[in-house]
Design a binder for these strands. Structure first.
Lengths: 232, 232
DNA sequence: CGATTGATTGATTGAATTCAACGTTCGTGG
DNA sequence: CCACGAACGTTGAATTCAATCAATCAATCG
């Protein structure tokens, strides 16, 4: 990957918005670039956070293995997102495991370097605050949904979020841009693959979505939004 | 309230840790102090955030009224916590409503002033980043619990969190330090008051807690922790 | 072409919600 | 000071939604 492309990734990252060129250069100099194949584990739950990672390309899943063996997916991250940010900012062990879903391009900075950069360039700190705040609000929103809504409704919301975040234009509508199984969806909304299978099958019959192996395409977005908000 | 007591509230707030005296003085000068009675609404969901509030004393509940009329409690905040922080930092409308549960003492800064302070004193920005990160991690944790655990388990976790945060020493054990109904607990863990009633009654019979009208005292913390983690 | 992974579908079970009724505590105003 | 209403709490029964179990089918990949 060429120097200019790396630079491209950098300026696109919300963390570095509004930075002067000199600062960007310094940020770039202290960064580490790497590419990893799908299924690579970026870090494990409990690890000490030694770097802040900015996702340049690809999809990363952040998840927890729970006591009874169940898995809960906390985040599905795409290009521009930060990985391990909370733990780096808090100086505490990583609360979850991060796995690459697709091949990824990562930019990273050592934890100590991250704090130095924030100190030297308050703009980065302000951007980080905005970014963490945005994710925090999303978590609060999902918590409320989990507390008050039925499974079908939560599946609708999950698919809408994924579509907005990493959706691709497809002939039939908007396609989720990575291989997504029933199990994956179940781990996002807090249910099991059987319920997801039944719901998707039902929607497919009614023409709301098109679905195949590891694939979901939203056709009738209106309808899905209605299910997400009304639950009907 | 005397000048020195206000100063006391300020230095205790995690947002202003590590600030030099001159900075603290400026922060103090631009702050507004007010006391509000229980049941006061600090702001409504959808309002424009015009101030950052630091809770000096009292309990504030942050909640959302959901579509079907159900209520979801997002946060129960105590002394030292920030209220409306996310919306101020993000420059977006307040995503939830904040209500004083007890009489409260508040310190606040106009939103614009808040941003100025962060800009002038990067330490405040760093503290804010740490604070928001901590809350974000707690939300992620609760999301996972909501996705994978049973109601009884979630009630146990909720009570443990409340005890740690605003618990008071009582003869029988640790008492939740504000009037807490079955309905309140239900809105925190995402269930209804009937289930909560049955669970608490069961625990009381087994001597794990003592409970009365608007009152919960944790007696056997070990046991509750076991229920929280094992679910058994 | 077998083996593996993902998806479907029916049957069963169980947890939690909902509905209904009643008991208790507390505050307030007659 | 008592009576009453309002808010809180309990409890049983019925119902529903979702989790679990089991079996089969389909697609993908070495």
């Amino acid at each position: 990957m060429s120097e200019s492309n790396v630079h491209e990734l950098l300026v696109r990252n919300p963390l570095f918005a509004g930075l002067p060129q000199t600062a960007l250069d310094e940020v770039l100099l202290t960064s580490k670039l790497r590419m990893i194949p799908a299924k690579t584990v970026l870090y494990h739950q409990g690890d000490t956070p030694n770097e802040l990672i900015a996702l340049g390309k690809g999809i990363v899943k952040v998840w927890q293995m729970r006591n009874g063996g169940a898995i809960a997916t906390i985040h599905v991250l795409g290009p521009g997102d930060l990985v391990g940010d909370i733990a780096v900012f808090r100086h505490v062990p990583l609360p979850a495991t991060a796995t690459a879903i697709t091949d990824c391009i990562l930019l990273s900075w050592a934890a100590a370097r991250t704090h130095e950069l924030i100190e030297r360039y308050p703009t980065i700190g302000a951007n980080a605050l905005g970014y963490v705040s945005r994710r925090s609000e999303e978590l609060a929103q999902r918590l409320c949904e989990m507390a008050t809504e039925r499974v079908e409704q939560r599946i609708a919301r999950a698919l809408l979020r994924l579509a907005d975040q990493i959706g691709l234009a497809a002939p039939e509508g908007v396609e989720i841009g990575y291989p997504l199984s029933r199990q994956d969806i179940a781990e996002i909304v807090g249910t099991d693959l059987y319920v997801v299978s039944r719901v998707l099958h039902d929607w497919a019959e009614r023409g709301v979505i098109v679905t195949g192996r590891l694939r979901v395409v939203l056709c009738d977005r209106q309808r899905i939004e209605q299910i997400a908000t009304d639950g009907k």
